[in-house]
């Protein structure tokens, strides 16, 4: 019994020492973990995955009016009178770093998109949101993180982004969500995406891109429940220079937070195919 007490107190001392060592030594404490650069003093250090990377897994959602219009904008009536205030545009500060640097012909097309957005917005037809739009839609998304693949799944239209963390290839063909190669820079997940088609929009206001779109995102946990999201958008066919967006993203904290299924295809079939329905004999 004396032996047991002796061992227990030795163990206790050992545990306390280990805690003190861990607290003081910062990022490079554990020999088993691969070394990672020291975060800036005061910067948040996210809990680590088993392979020593910041653990970004979880369910998140952007809280912003950018899904209406990524630029600063006033409140405005919606295009569908019957929907009244429910589908009116809320004013927003925007997430852009200035007016979008459209080429003159592209600006004309943007204005045409806006004027015809009910017919043209791909979101209305339950089409995939593209990138970065899927990251700031008013619906939750989930990050599922493994060493070789990080999957980002949006509840809207069940959009899936595969982020290739180790096997970096060029896009074999064009897609709605793009082809994403990712790597870590300290606490930040950097995602480089190309291989876009020209069919998605940036928001409900008709801001658009060509298939030359190139997006570089930087995602960093700023504390246990928030991510900082920045993206540089480059598209020499549409814009005169690259431009940036930035916004915070929030962890969904409800107990049992989860993505519910939002398969919107059945909700838009009459819209898309209704005019091809066989006319009834009534």
């Amino acid at each position: 019994m004396g032996d047991w007490l002796g061992r227990a107190s030795t163990t206790a001392v050992g545990v306390i020492a280990a805690i003190l060592l861990t607290a003081s030594a910062g990022a490079q404490t554990r020999a088993a973990q691969p070394a990672s650069p020291q975060p800036r003093s005061g910067a948040y250090r996210a809990p680590r995955t088993a392979d020593g990377k910041p653990n970004l897994s979880g369910i998140y959602q952007a809280i912003t009016e950018a899904y209406w219009d990524i630029e600063p904008h006033s409140a405005a009536p919606g295009p569908v009178q019957e929907l009244g205030a429910s589908f009116a545009t809320a004013g927003g500060l925007g997430i852009t770093d200035g007016p979008l640097p459209y080429k003159p012909e592209a600006l004309a097309k943007k204005k045409e998109n806006y004027a015809n957005r009910i017919k043209l917005d791909p979101e209305i037809k339950c089409y995939l949101p593209g990138t970065p739009r899927g990251m700031y839609m008013p619906y939750p998304f989930q990050i599922i993180q493994t060493p070789a693949y990080i999957m980002i799944v949006s509840s809207y239209a069940r959009a899936v982004r595969t982020i290739y963390m180790t096997d970096h290839k060029e896009a074999p063909a064009d897609s709605w969500m793009g082809w994403s190669n990712g790597h870590w820079e300290g606490e930040t997940l950097v995602i480089d995406t190309t291989g876009f088609n020209d069919l998605s929009w940036f928001d409900r206001a008709g801001n658009f891109h060509s298939d030359q779109l190139h997006v570089v995102e930087r995602i960093t946990a700023t504390d246990a429940d928030h991510l900082s999201y920045e993206a540089t958008i480059e598209d020499p066919q549409t814009f005169t220079r690259p431009w940036k967006i930035a916004l915070p993203i929030y962890r969904r904290l409800e107990k049992n937070a989860q993505l519910l299924e939002f398969n919107c295809i059945p909700f838009v079939e009459d819209l898309i195919y209704g005019q091809l329905r066989k006319p009834s004999s009534n």
């Binding site: 995955t49 088993a50 897994s57 989930q142 599922i144 993180q145 493994t146 693949y149 999957m151 799944v153 069940r158 899936v160 595969t162 049992n256 989860q258 993505l259």
Partner: peptide, 28 residues
């Protein structure tokens, strides 16, 4: 394609690019 994180298994089904996200943490 199957990927596994500590409390989640995801099966990406090729046809329809369907995500099956399966929690393994006892969520009700």
């Amino acid at each position: 394609q199957i990927v596994q994180a500590p409390d989640t298994v995801m099966i990406l089904v090729e046809m329809l690019h369907s995500p099956r996200i399966i929690p393994t943490n006892g969520r009700p």
